[in-house]
């Protein structure tokens, strides 16, 4: 491997690590909601700092590769994509800590039935899955999987679009749940953003991978792709 390839591998593996961290942040925030566990929520808030420092580190690494190696073609596209994916992941990290903050702020636990009826839990699981699948698409440079993200984001959008009604239902049933219902609405809004960010990431993956396998050569040269 050339030094440039090593650098790019390094950026890639850092991105994957950050991705794992962000996924676990989302998972933990969900645990905090469902179990109304303020300790877990605090843990998420603390770990948000690690997400931020990951972002800075990846930014700096990309910067260095640009300055030192003047990457072109697939390398250039990868690094541009990496920068944007980095930003998107950081946002998702913010969202996870925002959700955890609700748990810290909320005076009482969230009503399980309300979370079911509004579709929050289903939405949460799907958001986590989508994020995980974009990561797999990224690691395997799998544009088919990346394209499937767009469809799956529609599910999140549906739940989000219906949320005014479903939340209103909850409030109508029991006016005492009003504060909780508003938290639920806010969380749904945030999860919708997770879907959008994942969609952006999927677009970046397609941008970086797809221009790479190109309208393949007429005559196959002796240059072969190194994997």
């Amino acid at each position: 491997m050339t030094p440039l390839e090593l650098e790019i591998e390094q950026v890639k593996s850092e991105l994957v690590s950050m991705w794992m961290l962000v996924q676990s942040q989302l998972n933990k925030a969900k645990e905090a909601i469902t179990l109304y566990d303020k300790d877990v929520a605090h843990e998420v808030l603390v770990k948000e700092k690690r997400v931020n420092s990951f972002e800075l580190k990846i930014d700096r690494d990309c910067e260095n590769v640009f300055a030192l190696y003047c990457p072109v073609a697939v390398d250039l596209r990868f690094l541009l994509a990496a920068l944007k994916i980095n930003t998107n992941l950081e946002r998702i990290g913010d969202i996870a800590s925002g959700i955890a903050q609700y748990v810290v702020d909320s005076p009482a636990n969230f009503d399980m039935a309300a979370m079911e009826s509004t579709g929050l839990l289903r939405m949460y699981d799907e958001a986590i899955n989508i994020l995980a699948d974009t990561r797999i698409a990224f690691e395997n440079e799998d544009t088919v999987l990346a394209r499937s993200i767009f469809k799956r984001d529609d599910v999140l959008d549906d739940i989000n679009d219906n949320s005014p009604n479903t939340v209103a239902e909850v409030i109508k049933k029991d006016a005492g749940l009003l504060p909780e219902a508003l938290y639920i609405l806010s969380i749904i809004r945030k999860l919708e953003r997770v879907g959008d960010q994942s969609k952006n990431i999927a677009e970046e993956i397609i941008f970086y991978v797809e221009a790479k396998i190109l309208k393949h050569a007429k005559s196959s040269g002796k240059l072969t792709e190194e994997d």
Binding site: A73, G221, L223, E226
Partner: peptide, 30 residues
């Protein structure tokens, strides 16, 4: 000895159309 690709420079350096071009400009020769 063949002219493999002839295109706008910007295109060549961001998304070359031919695998051989890409391998050359990214320094990946087998």
């Amino acid at each position: 000895g063949e002219l493999v690709e002839f295109d706008d420079t910007k295109q060549m350096f961001t998304a070359p159309a031919d695998q051989r071009t890409q391998n050359y400009i990214t320094g990946r020769f087998s």
